[in-house]
Computed example of a mutant assay.
Amino acid sequence: MLHILFLFSLILSSSSISNAADFCVADLMAAEGPAGFPCKAAAKVTADDFVYTALAKSGNTTNIISAAVSPAFVAQFPGVNGLGISIARLDLAPGGVIPFHTHPGASELLLCLHGHILAGFVSSANKVYIKKVGKGEIMVFPQGLLHFQVNAGKNSATAFVSFSSPDPGLQILDYALFGNDLPSKLVETVTFLDDAQVKKLKGVLGGTG
């Protein structure tokens, strides 16, 4: 009987904890830890914390990649903190490209809103999966794998990409190789590119060394 009462008390306890933690709106003024941001005081949470309107506007595609990524991750949208989700908007002008990149913390689901997008990823076995998606079509990119998106049409294309984390992380391959102070000689050694190519790419992407 005592065992039953003990288990019952545990169930009630866990239930009350669950009810007390319906959400954890991020306190962006506090330091982020391994488990994310601490919760904003419940008394200060409002409906506005669960609404984000910036994705209604297209991003600025006047740049080197003719594309824009507008994120609604925890840093922009505190309401997703702790919920295991986030989203971003992709705008690709004609010729636009989202270069090879990875999200170490999340899988990604792309939904094409209009236009046509050629997208793909490379598995850890170096097998390539490429598909052109159009309006209303979706494609998934497994967590941590290199992937890309390219405008495959003559007009602008727009997509929304959702993630299985409020903070999926991002590393762009081109910038990892050519957008920092990694010595050119070392880049040449690990990529088999010649000196002129490496220095040209470093100049384009802001790298030194």
Rank of each mutant, 00 (worst) to 15 (best):
S58I: 01
G59R: 05
G59C: 00
N60K: 08
T61W: 08
T61F: 08
T62I: 05
T62R: 10
T62E: 03
N63L: 02
I64N: 07
I64M: 11
I64H: 08
I65Q: 15
S66K: 15
A67M: 15
A68M: 03
A68V: 05
V69A: 01
V69Y: 06
V69P: 01
S70G: 03
S70D: 01
P71Y: 12
P71V: 14
F73P: 00
F73K: 08
V74A: 00
A75V: 11
Q76F: 05
N81Y: 04
N81G: 01
G82D: 00
I85H: 02
I85P: 00
S86C: 07
I87S: 01
A88M: 13
A88G: 07
L90A: 03
D91H: 02
D91V: 04
D91M: 08
L92W: 11
A93W: 11
A93N: 11
P94L: 06
P94M: 04
G96P: 10
G96Y: 10
V97G: 00
P99G: 02
P99M: 00
F100M: 09
F100L: 14
H101I: 02
H101C: 02
T102E: 01
H103K: 12
H103E: 04
H103T: 08
P104L: 15
P104H: 12
E108Q: 15
E108M: 12
L111N: 13
C112A: 15
C112K: 10
H114R: 14
H116D: 11
I117Q: 10
G120T: 13
V122R: 14
V122A: 08
S123M: 03
S124H: 06
A125C: 01
A125N: 07
K127F: 07
V128A: 03
Y129G: 01
I130M: 08
K131E: 12
K131F: 02
V133Y: 06
V133W: 01
G134I: 05
G134H: 06
K135V: 06
E137A: 03
E137K: 08
I138F: 07
M139Q: 09
V140S: 11
V140D: 04
F141R: 11
P142L: 09
Q143N: 07
G144Q: 06
L146G: 00
H147Q: 14
Q149A: 10
Q149K: 07
V150Y: 14
V150C: 09
N151F: 07
A152F: 12
A152L: 05
A152M: 07
A152N: 15
G153Y: 03
G153Q: 02
S156D: 08
S156A: 10
S156V: 02
S156E: 04
A157T: 11
A157P: 11
T158P: 05
T158G: 03
T158D: 03
A159P: 00
F160H: 08
F160D: 06
S162G: 15
S162P: 11
F163Y: 15
F163T: 06
F163S: 01
D167M: 09
D167L: 11
D167V: 08
P168L: 12
G169L: 09
G169R: 15
